[in-house]
Simulated assay, not measured.
Amino acid sequence: MTVAVIQFGGSNCDRDAVRALNYLGIDAERVWHEDGLPEDTTGIMLPGGFSYGDYLRAGAMAARSPIMAEVREAADDGVPVLGVCNGAQVGSESGLTAGAFTTNKSARFQCEHVHLRVENADTPWTEEFDEGDVIEVPIAHGEGRFEITDERYDELEANDQILFRYCDADGNLTDEANPNGSTGNVAGILGDDDSVAVLMPHPERATLPDVGGTDGADVLTGFRV
Rank of each mutant, 00 (worst) to 15 (best):
T123P: 00
E128A: 11
P124A: 01
E136N: 13
D150T: 15
F146P: 00
D130H: 09
A98T: 08
S92I: 14
C85D: 07
N86H: 06
E93K: 03
C111V: 11
R108N: 11
E128S: 11
S94D: 14
T149F: 11
D154K: 15
A100S: 13
V90R: 09
E119R: 02
E119P: 00
Q110D: 12
E136Y: 09
F129R: 03
H141S: 07
A88K: 04
L96A: 11
D130L: 14
N86Q: 08
F146W: 06
I135M: 10
R117V: 14
V90C: 05
W125Q: 00
E147Q: 13
G95E: 05
N104T: 12
R117D: 02
Q89I: 06
N86T: 12
K105Q: 13
I148F: 01
G83M: 09
R152N: 13
K105L: 09
T102K: 08
D154R: 15
F109H: 07
V134F: 01
Y153N: 06
L96C: 10
V137I: 15
T103D: 10
G144R: 04
G83V: 03
N86A: 12
V84D: 06
E127Q: 12
S94Y: 10
R108C: 08
V90M: 05
R117Y: 01
R108D: 11
D154W: 01
D154Q: 15
C85L: 09
S94R: 08
I148H: 00
T149A: 09
R152D: 15
E93D: 11
F146T: 01
N120W: 02
E127M: 12
E143V: 08
L116R: 04
E112D: 13
A88N: 10
R152Y: 15
E112W: 08
E112S: 09
D130M: 10
E151L: 11
V81L: 05
F101C: 07
K105S: 14
V134K: 05
V137Q: 01
E147W: 10
S106C: 09
Q89S: 03
E151H: 10
Q89K: 14
G144C: 08
V137H: 00
V90F: 02
E131T: 09
Y153W: 10
H113D: 14
T97W: 09
W125C: 00
F101L: 15
E128W: 03
G87S: 09
L96M: 13
Q89M: 13
H115I: 09
E151C: 12
F146D: 00
V137M: 10
Q110R: 07
V118S: 04
V84Q: 04
